[in-house]
Design a protein around this nucleic acid. Sequence first.
DNA 1: CACCGCGATGTTTACGCAAACATCAGCCCT
DNA 2: AGGGCTGATGTTTGCGTAAACATCGCGGTG
Lengths: 334, 334
Amino acid sequence: MADVARLAGVSSQTVSRVSNGYAGVNEETRRQVLAAMKELGYRPNSAARALKRGEFRTIGVITFTLSTTGNVRTLEAIATSAAAEGYAVTLLPVAMPTQDEVRGAFSRLEELAVDAVIVIMEVHLLDAATVTLPPHVQVVVVDSDAGDRYTVVDTDQHSGSRIAVRHLLDLGHRTVWHLGGPEDSFAAQRRTDAWRSALEEAGRPVPPLVRGDWSAESGYRVGLELAAQQECTAVFAANDQMALGLLRALHERGRRVPEDVSVIGFDDIPEAGSFLPPLTTLHQDFAEVGRLCVEAVLRKMRQVGPERGTTLVPTRLVERASTAPPPVGGGGGG
Amino acid sequence: MADVARLAGVSSQTVSRVSNGYAGVNEETRRQVLAAMKELGYRPNSAARALKRGEFRTIGVITFTLSTTGNVRTLEAIATSAAAEGYAVTLLPVAMPTQDEVRGAFSRLEELAVDAVIVIMEVHLLDAATVTLPPHVQVVVVDSDAGDRYTVVDTDQHSGSRIAVRHLLDLGHRTVWHLGGPEDSFAAQRRTDAWRSALEEAGRPVPPLVRGDWSAESGYRVGLELAAQQECTAVFAANDQMALGLLRALHERGRRVPEDVSVIGFDDIPEAGSFLPPLTTLHQDFAEVGRLCVEAVLRKMRQVGPERGTTLVPTRLVERASTAPPPVGGGGGG
DNA sequence: CACCGCGATGTTTACGCAAACATCAGCCCT
DNA sequence: AGGGCTGATGTTTGCGTAAACATCGCGGTG
């Protein structure tokens, strides 16, 4: 910076002013400084800047696994939104869903150059990891019900699941089975709760719950059980990957989709439209979730209060070929 | 830090020594300092550290889109490996594959706190973006053939594709069709080249090339054309998503897989085993690619020379149900 | 016994930047 | 004409840390 100042014949402070786009610099002077910067290939040192300003312009994202579409898409949206606001995004992967790993991520975070944190994770683990964060670091959480302790942004799992169940009931199915996600996931839990309450509200029997672990493979395994239930004509799978496995299981057991069994998923992954048959599912707007996370965290940073509460992003039903009215004489009559 | 020093009754330099794990500190003193740190909730300020040390312990990852499995898995592996080495990872998303966007990412990078950059991107764009990087910033590229200008780490696309073609020929197919990836992708280009050369080497006819854009949807569209070719008994799809679309197209046109047509993919995405039928494909070791990227970039940072060259990670054939010998009287006789 | 060497610790300094304050010239007002 | 105001610029200072150097005490050695 001193070199630039010398070359431009000004003080280093003026260089700083130009570099930060401050007003109150003569147009002529500004041009000279910019020319000098360019000639010397000057780049501001972000460490010094951060030290002086007391902020890093960086948001940390803690995420357990990038193997689910949702996490990835949300992360991408966060990174894009953050970039638009002049913030960088630092990734803090948690290799295993263990307490130690989570604690480790948070403690790495402690010495990390971030002003705020967005957590994309099952919050069961977050709770237990009683880590004291640097006091000024703001936190926003995705996939949680901890709205009273953190600011939460999430897809509206509840209403989405109700839409799924309603869609199948409206087609004439007597009831809807559910291929749920893992027990330790809040998202899975909420989808399951909504499924049950929607059925109860409609006065329909609630079939036994079966669970997978989000993977297509688990959907296949559990799907084989469902395929054996002749009275099962409609299944709400908690995500599209499991729905894929379910489709395969049904196919192998000779149960046609949607003629014999209707299947609805959740997520609307890009491949869902290419399943056999194309999958009816609930579209999640991950881009919006990510955008809102960044917005929330920046608002918290800029304002004072630690504003808590939950923001929900609606889902949208995408009808494809995997859902249809029940077979006549089958489970119909709802 | 001064507070800690005061509380522990030592100088701030001793605190620094403890904080950085230097030898030459009395065990008794060290304990006192650690206790003081804990009591005061001291955390080293990474900005000041970076300023003093002249390095950020951070690696930037520039990536265009996180919508492909490969990019995501590689990114995840990079983040994990980097964390193991005490490095953080900063994400630099490039929203659109345009020159301007790439240039933008690189210029954001210029003021960003990174010591090195890993680029996961089609390098066609990278070339044109003649940005002058900060001189000390090392670059490693994934998916490129620019081994003479950058250090490159990539999956061995060529040998993987040859294995795919050989597998189908060995099953008895006369030749192998190819559903290629987009023209502007180096990875796609290499897979296509390898397909062609493997056929030529075996003295087989080279069917006309069809291309998709990596998406399942495009695989379906193009797949409809392939399905119309009665002499087509074996297809090598450049990735699993397009293979999924192809499977759907073949199904809709009444061509059974693998009885009438064999299909092989590339990537081995987690869902591939749940396709209908389960997809034979080439497994890419993205974790290894990511690990090697970090290793390479750290080696470059620590040593002097800008060591160039290419490291290839081998693929592995995963046989599932989508490949079989050709129908008798069909395209057989290879 | 004086001196050297070494381990343990303290003191000084500079990293690059930007806020705070200081300066200075030109201008308007009374 | 003098005072005060404004806009443009320069000077000083300190952010928190760690390298470099200084110091200090102790035990061993000639």
